[in-house]
Design a protein around this nucleic acid. Structure first.
Length: 200
DNA sequence: CATGGGATTGACT
DNA sequence: GTCAATCCCATGC
């Protein structure tokens, strides 16, 4: 059952929390969302904080719009726009548990380990074939879809912690992860050694 | 028009 | 743990 635009037209932190356990699909590849982060125009880590520009105008569009941007000149990061139209806010999808199209993901990523296919915001866009060309598309009727958590499936326990890799507003606990998942981008709390992440 | 920085990743010490 | 790759875009002259 696909999520509708109304699901995203809520406070961005609620949407970020509720997206954990939902399924992100593009083409023949799909994964269960296990890690998200919320961004809102009111805080400086959000691209929309500076207002509407050529880059950020998508963040102010209607709920359910897809925002894809290039990070560090290399990676594409995918976000889902939230809150009423005119408010700049979005949820960054940071990690997935791969569930469909594993071989396509392996081919695109150039590695086999399932834990490493989608365990990061740049990794999952590469695994699912999501590029900048999808910026501005819609999760309702567009190439990227989000499916609700199945009713017979238990709601995952969600851990709240601080966001990863930012310098501004780094203290806000706006990161949401599925407790115990082996597919998150980094262990919690953040700051543990990277070797622990690989073996855990 | 030139410049600097970034919501990351992977390779290397 | 440290660091370079790489490019779009916002900013400033």
């Amino acid at each position: 059952m696909a999520l509708q635009a109304q699901f995203f037209a809520r406070p961005v932190r609620e949407v970020a929390r509720d997206l954990v356990g939902c399924t992100l699909t593009h083409g023949r590849t799909a994964g269960v969302i296990v890690e998200t982060e919320a961004y809102h125009q009111s805080e400086p880590a959000c691209h929309a904080h500076i207002g509407r520009t050529a880059r950020t105008h998508v963040l102010f569009e209607s709920a359910g719009t897809v925002y894809v941007y290039r990070s560090y000149g290399i990676h594409a990061l995918v976000n889902l726009v939230c809150e009423p139209e005119g408010i700049g806010a979005a949820v960054l999808i940071r990690a997935l548990e791969p569930v469909r199209g594993l071989e396509a993901m392996r081919a695109r990523r150039g590695l086999d380990a399932v834990e490493q296919l989608c365990s990061g915001p740049g990794k999952l866009t590469q695994a699912l074939g999501i590029g900048l060309d999808l910026n501005g598309t819609d999760v309702v009727g567009g190439p990227i879809r989000v499916g609700a958590r199945p009713a017979n499936q238990e709601r995952p326990e969600v851990v709240e912690s601080t966001r990863i890799g930012i310098t501004k507003a780094a203290e806000l606990p706006w990161r949401y992860s599925a407790r115990g998942s082996r597919f998150v981008s980094r262990p919690w709390p953040p700051g543990l050694t990277s070797t622990a992440a690989l073996t855990g």
